[in-house]
Each structure stands twice: as structure tokens, then as C-alpha cells.
């Protein structure tokens, strides 16, 4: 069983540069897998391959049937639509209408009372939460996050991390996330994959030794500090 599986995956850009060749990687069902690596090594492109937005040049990307969702670094809300219309977009595109589901996910991210507002009237953190709500509205089995938290200030980011972990625990989807923040990778993930490149290669896979559900105090334990140092040395 797997949520996503890269098998002998190669991808070459139209200009002939190779993004990766012969890459193997598996996201287990229900796990949070974080990708970290230097800027430009190919993390976002791997996510887009996982989502099927790009087709591999050779090898395969396998996903079991089921809904998936992508959260971009920027909220990517359509500014002419209210929050609830934005959240309803994925349903609308497949001809569904489910106002109850829209309100439910907006409640999940704490935005229910802002449902009828336009994105421009909301803060960056609120827009990001709306973007998360939109990702969750189709009940995805796989959620792909591309530096989804990185544009937020520290406090907002911590709050959204906790909210995200709670939703993840309740819904049980799998997560493949890209981040450049090692703290964030350790704090959220079950496994952290350290990448190098380009062309992108797996440098090391780190099993995160923190209990779940995670609590803020764990951030200050020696075990966390040791893992963080280990990761820092790898990069």
C-alpha cells in the first residue's frame, strides 16, 4: 500500500536538462512526508509530478484512485469570489454543490463567520487557511503542500501547524509536503526526506522520533534538538 509511489522516475525539461533520473520514493498511506533540500533542487517539480500536473519522461508515478489536493505557497484564491465560493470551486468544477461541506471545512479552519467576504478583505494568514479549506473540501486522500506555511509570520504559522495536525489526525489523509524550514519538517512530519541536486536525488531519509499527538513542549526537548542538528548537518 502507498499513497504515492515514484518508480524509476525520470523527468527531463524541454530544454534537455534532467530534473531527476531513476528516482524511487514512496509516501505511506496516512503519513506526513516532508521534502527538504536546497533551493532549486527540484522539490516543487516533484510535487507537481506527484499531482499529475506534469507527466514523467520515463518511469511512473502511481497513485491509488481518490481525491487529491494541492496547496500552493500563495493562497491562490480567486479575488472576485467570496471565501465560500472559492472553497466551493473544486466541487463546482465537477458539477457538485454541497454548501454544508463548504461550511464544514470553513469551520475547520476557523473562518465560518467570514464565508461571504472577499479575499482582499482578509489577512494573509486567513487567506492561507481558506486555501487549506478549499483543499479539504473534496475529502482528499492525498494532500500536497508546497511551502504552504512559509509566507506566514511565526505566530500564525505555529497556530496553523497545530490546526493542520488536528485536521490531519481527524481525517487521516496522507501528506507530501515541501518546506525549507527544518523545524517545520520535524514538527509536522513522520519522515523527512533530504534531497540534493539538481538533478534531484534522495540524500537521506530521516525517521522523526517524536510522539503523536505532538505537543509544543516537544519542540524544546533534547531529542528534538538532536534531530534538528542532525538535519542541519545534512544540508
Amino acid at each position: 500500500m502507498y499513497a504515492v509511489r515514484f518508480q524509476d522516475l525520470s523527468f527531463t525539461w524541454p530544454n534537455g536538462e534532467a530534473l531527476c533520473s531513476g528516482l524511487d520514493m514512496v509516501v505511506q498511506p496516512g503519513e506526513i512526508l516532508a521534502l527538504v533540500g536546497p533551493s532549486g533542487c527540484g522539490k516543487s517539480t516533484l510535487l507537481r509530478l506527484a499531482a499529475g500536473l506534469l507527466a514523467p519522461s520515463s518511469g511512473s508515478v502511481e497513485r491509488p484512485k481518490g481525491e487529491q489536493a494541492f496547496v500552493f505557497q500563495k493562497p491562490t484564491l480567486l479575488p472576485w469570489r467570496t471565501l465560500q465560493e472559492n472553497v466551493a470551486l473544486p466541487l463546482e468544477l465537477v458539477g457538485r454543490s454541497d454548501p454544508a461541506a463548504v461550511i464544514e471545512v470553513l469551520e475547520l479552519v476557523g473562518l465560518a463567520e467570514h464565508a461571504t467576504k472577499l479575499p482582499v478583505t482578509l489577512s494573509g494568514g486567513m487567506q492561507m487557511r481558506a486555501s487549506l479549506a478549499r483543499a479539504l473540501v473534496t475529502q482528499p486522500e492525498l494532500v500536497l503542500l508546497d511551502e504552504a506555511f512559509s509566507a506566514l509570520d511565526g505566530l500564525t504559522r505555529r497556530r496553523l501547524h497545530l490546526a493542520f495536525l488536528e485536521i490531519w489526525r481527524a481525517k487521516g489523509f496522507s501528506v507530501l509536503m515541501v518546506t525549507h524550514d527544518l523545524d517545520e519538517a520535524l514538527w509536522l512530519a513522520d519522515r523527512v526526506v533530504v534531497l540534493e541536486g539538481p538533478p534531484v536525488r534522495l540524500k537521506q531519509v530521516v525517521q522523526v522520533e517524536l510522539d503523536r499527538p505532538r505537543a509544543r513542549e516537544q519542540l524544546h526537548t533534547p531529542a528534538f534538538g538532536a534531530q534538528l542538528q542532525g538535519l542541519e548537518r545534512l544540508l
Partner: peptide
Amino acid sequence: SEVELLQLYGA
């Protein structure tokens, strides 16, 4: 990303 968002949902 706006285009990809719609592409992702099969628009």
C-alpha cells in the same frame, strides 16, 4: 498556480 489549480480538478 491558478491555472494548475483548475487543471488539478480536471477543469
